[in-house]
Design a protein around this nucleic acid. Structure first.
Length: 179
DNA sequence: AACGAATACAACCGCGACAAG
DNA sequence: CCTTGTCGCGGTTGTATTCGT
């Protein structure tokens, strides 16, 4: 039972995952007209999306210079260092990681690094408790035990073949379609 | 094989800053 | 100076996939 939108005058706004068709429409439109003024862009392109949604999709996934997946140990280090330095200034941090978006970094931090640090802290706390009886001499336990070592030793580096759809595919598709 | 929990990622929402009229 | 529209940012939620039992 779906309402047929055939004669509806209200502009319904699509939400949720973007389809390849929508992606192509957006890519094509921006290739011709350029980006910016997202609300009118969304309307002119015939996308039933908000300008915000279009901007988000373009900036985070469709831009040709966006790199997806495969965050390297070096990038992990940069993220951790800059987050410690600046806090959750994701866009600022993203500027230091070419091809990475603030949203990706933010997600990466929340899902992996934050969790990992939490685990490390609880482990450290446990070790701390357990080792109080064993500590002799030095007796100092670093609260954040050698972050760099942790990263290199414990973060699994993602496999190189994890990328399913590179944007080059879409770009070549749209080039084939467009011209 | 089926199910629930955990995880990772994609997308939306709310808010503040800024510029143009 | 005020109003309105747009942009950008950070937080949060939704959903698909993976993992363990």
């Amino acid at each position: 039972m779906e309402k047929t939108p055939c004669n509806s005058q209200e502009v319904e706004v699509r939400k949720g995952p973007w389809t390849i068709e929508e992606d192509l429409i957006l890519i094509n439109y921006i290739a011709i007209h350029g980006e910016g003024v997202w609300n009118s862009l969304a309307r002119s392109a015939g996308l039933k999306r908000t300008g915000k949604s279009c901007r988000f999709r373009w900036l985070n996934y469709l831009r040709p210079d966006v790199r997806r997946g495969n965050i390297t140990p070096e990038e992990q280090l940069v993220i951790i260092e800059l987050q410690a330095k600046w806090g959750n200034r994701w866009s600022k941090i993203a500027k230091h990681l070419p091809g990475r978006t603030d949203n990706e970094i933010k997600n990466y931090w929340r899902t992996r690094i934050q969790k990992h640090i939490k685990q490390t802290e609880t482990l450290t706390a446990q070790n701390d408790q357990a080792s109080t009886s064993q500590i002799s001499g030095s007796g100092h336990v670093d609260p954040v035990p050698s972050l760099n070592e942790n990263i290199e030793n414990n973060f699994p580096t993602e496999s190189n073949d994890s990328i399913v759809w590179s944007m080059e595919d879409l770009w070549s598709m749209q080039l084939l379609n467009g011209d």
